[in-house]
Write a protein that binds this DNA or RNA. Structure first.
Length: 283
DNA sequence: AGGCCTCCCTGCGCGC
DNA sequence: TGCGCGCAGGGAGGCC
């Protein structure tokens, strides 16, 4: 799925077109995505205005004027697109150069002025939830720190890693510790910080956690600047591909030379996910 | 309790 | 060219 930079890219794409828009009609093409859609979903959304679109970790948060918040997680292949309204007249920001098959259009949210927001999700690993505004904190109580926040730094990472026997790569993917990093950026950040993905998190020295926290921020910010990464599924709200995939140093580069030392990049499986790293640079 | 594995789903690319 | 297999950015739940 989209990781933090991709979700934030989608948020930034949607916000100017949807903030202030009033929901006129909601159509569900099916009753469930990964999980069942919330009860009375259409009824609870219809008539409300989207006041603000926010993000927490990999979740998009549509704040509504009726004090409900619609949470959307894109899973692996979820994407939003806007049709009609101003968006259609703004080819610079919102053209759809990769029309997704409408076969996987699952949720249609129509606004006034014939504008509509469509949620498309091929693999249906995404999900949506509806919460009262004052229940939102409770929903995220087990969610880790935002890696781009000021609170996230070497000290914070050191504290999170302390005593952990799990490898650092697995630890970075634990959303309850740090929220928003996925497989690609975990690999890339460890490469940048020259730390082995196999190293037990608790064995990291203070200096290493400082370097790693800085590397995470650097990678995420750069990806954000380039509109995220596009492999197969990810496009922003206008259908435009991200560009960070051209900057990968290790992800998907198994067997190719390390850009720093020339050793061959290796790939192996950790906790069920592919890890790419340079066995020479990352110790 | 922590950490690993499996599974959910569809589509695509690669090798035979 | 055609088919089958493995794999894909996530995360919840279950098991050891």
């Amino acid at each position: 799925m989209p990781e933090l930079p991709e979700v934030e890219t989608v948020r930034r794409g949607l916000a100017p077109y949807l903030e202030g828009a009033k929901i006129a009609r909601v159509t569900l093409r099916r009753k469930d995505l990964r999980f069942p859609l919330p009860a009375s979903f259409s009824k609870r959304l219809t008539g409300a205005r989207i006041t603000k679109i926010g993000r927490r970790a990999k979740y998009l948060l549509f704040h509504l004027s009726n004090d409900l918040v619609l949470l959307s997680h894109l899973g692996m292949s979820g994407r939003f697109r806007i049709e009609g309204g101003k968006a259609a007249n703004n080819p610079g920001a919102f053209y759809d150069d990769t029309p997704a098959s409408t076969r996987h259009d699952h949720v249609l949210i129509e606004f006034d002025a014939k504008k509509r927001l469509i949620y498309n999700d091929t693999r249906r690993f995404g999900f949506m939830e509806l919460f009262a505004k004052n229940e939102l904190t409770k929903r995220f109580v087990n969610m880790g720190i935002e890696p781009l926040s000021n609170e996230f730094n070497g000290h914070a990472l050191y504290a999170l890693c302390k005593g952990k026997k799990a490898p650092i790569k697995t630890t970075l993917l634990d959303q309850g510790l740090i929220a928003g990093i996925g497989n690609i950026y975990a690999c890339e950040a460890l490469y940048l910080a020259k730390i082995s993905p196999k190293k037990p998190a608790g064995k990291l020295k203070r200096e290493e956690t400082r370097l790693l926290s800085a590397a995470i921020k650097k990678i995420l910010k750069k990806a954000l600047k380039l509109g995220g990464s596009t492999l197969r599924d990810f496009h922003d709200a206008g259908g435009t591909a991200g560009r960070f995939q051209h900057e990968f140093c290790v992800y998907g580069r198994a067997g190719k030379p390390c850009l720093r030392c020339g050793s061959l990049i290796k790939c192996f499986t950790q906790a069920g996910r592919s890890t790419f790293y340079c066995p020479n640079c990352q110790r």
